[in-house]
Design a protein around this nucleic acid. Structure first.
Length: 432
DNA sequence: AACCTCACG
DNA sequence: ACGTACGTGAGGTTC
């Protein structure tokens, strides 16, 4: 069954960045020699019909709520546009970064923050506009209009012409790390304001189950870092703990700003972030950023060792892999171009973590499917990296939720428990 | 088609 | 001198 798809999946597993087109037999032979057979047979192949069914089910749209949201947005956009043209002293195309740059940096004499790397023109992106907020009143209106135009143009106006149910396509070979991607439309990047237009089928309730801090739990387990493992086992707020370590203060003295910085650092570490990026993100000097990162790795030394080992191994064999053998080849690691080599280095650090996260949710979907695919009271609607959105018949909710949690939390056994948070409600924007 | 910008995990 | 946090999809402008 579905031989053609199996062939695509097999080829993609062999090299996600550059899938070849070996015959099914050749590809399966190579999967065996590369220890990818289990990922192929136990994860990717069973997943194919599940994704098909998820798309076929679709998610219901509340067209009357959508219409009122659309009107609201259009009115606000018109208002902002009028303000902007008045302050600029003339009309221009708000969607043209070139014309926005002309207004800001030529007509109004504001100072550019940075140049675009490819074209050399002055950037007008979010970061730039935020830095210019105090310099001219037009800037905050530009920020607001960008936000509104994005939401209206990319999401709301596209949904207006959609049927009652949205059937997005989920691609199991969408990302080189093993994550899904979604398109037509992309249901994995719906902004909070737009979520209000999605509602469950009659007699059903949305139930969202998401893995709490899954990537941080995974890197704690993979690296064997005792400090972080102990924190997760005890259920301590991990960002708070991190803040107390890098600021060298007791847990009780951690304030929101410190916790926020620690959170940035915790996520940044998974991506191989350096001191320049951290200083920018956290709003501290580069020197301070260096000190924080140093202190971080002093306290979580196993994570530092783990990341160094990953890079060393990747340099030797030319790829990184996760504990299931899922691989990503990174030829740029050996590049003399340091930009390319550094990008590959960070991708190498991130891959074993992000891809294991992808495996966790894929395994959960398969376990769910084995038990529930014939049960018309429970429908899987969306899979969003660390979250599964279901609709469940109202009368079955209390029965089913604990079982879904159990399924999701027990797909893998690691040094750290997997934790799932639940929220339910009659609108996607309104889950609690 | 390349580029910039920006939505999400 | 310069630029770096991973992974996506999508809209518009410019050439």
């Amino acid at each position: 069954m579905f031989e053609e798809e199996k062939q695509k999946i097999a080829n993609w597993l062999l090299n996600p960045d550059h899938p070849e087109s070996l015959s099914l037999e050749e590809a399966e032979e190579r999967l065996r020699t590369l220890s990818l057979w289990k990922v192929y047979e136990e994860i990717e192949v069973p997943l194919f019909p599940i994704l098909k069914d998820m798309s076929a089910t679709g998610i219901r749209l509340d067209h009357s709520r959508l219409a009122s949201l659309a009107k609201e947005l259009k009115d606000e956009i018109a208002k902002e546009t009028k303000e902007i043209f008045a302050l600029a002293g003339g009309e221009f195309n708000l969607n043209s970064p070139k014309q926005v740059a002309d207004i800001l940096f030529t007509n109004l004499g504001l100072k550019p923050l940075k140049k675009n790397s490819k074209s050399g023109t002055s950037s007008t992106d979010y970061e730039t506009l935020v830095s210019l907020k105090a310099a001219h009143p037009i800037v905050e209106h530009l920020l607001k209009s960008r936000e509104l135009i994005k939401i209206e143009g990319t999401y709301v106006s596209k949904l207006l012409s959609a049927p009652e149910r949205i059937h997005a396509v989920f691609n199991q070979m969408g990302a080189a790390t093993g994550r899904f991607s979604s398109h037509d439309p992309n249901m994995q990047n719906i902004p909070p304001v737009v979520k209000q237009v999605f509602i469950p089928s009659d007699g059903f309730t949305f139930v969202s189950l998401d893995y709490s801090q899954i990537e941080l739990r995974l890197i704690a387990s993979l690296s064997g870092d005792e400090t972080m493992i102990a924190a997760f086992k005890k259920g301590i707020d991990i960002h708070r703990l991190t803040a107390s370590k890098i600021f060298k203060i007791p847990l009780q003295e951690v304030d929101d700003r410190m916790r926020g910085m620690a959170k940035t650092l915790n996520f940044g570490i998974i991506y191989g972030m350096g001191s320049v990026a951290f200083s920018k993100q956290a709003g501290v000097t580069r020197k301070e950023a260096e000190a924080f990162i140093k202190e971080y790795f002093k306290n979580f030394s196993a994570i530092k060792n783990y990341e160094e080992d990953i890079v060393m191994q990747a340099l030797q064999v030319g790829y990184t892999e996760n504990i299931h053998g899922r691989k990503r080849f990174l030829p740029d690691l050996a590049s003399r171009n340091s930009f390319l080599a550094n990008n590959a280095r960070r991708a190498a650090i991130n891959m074993p973590v992000q891809s294991l996260g992808a495996d966790v949710i894929k395994l959960a979907m398969i376990k769910f499917w084995e038990k529930y695919h014939a049960n018309s009271s429970v429908k899987l609607l969306l899979s969003i990296h660390d979250e599964l959105l279901f609709e469940i018949k109202d009368s079955k909710i209390d029965l089913v939720i604990p079982d879904l949690i159990k399924i999701m939390e027990s797909v893998l056994s690691l040094s750290v428990p997997l934790k799932v948070d639940v929220a339910k409600g009659k609108r996607w924007s309104d889950l609690s």
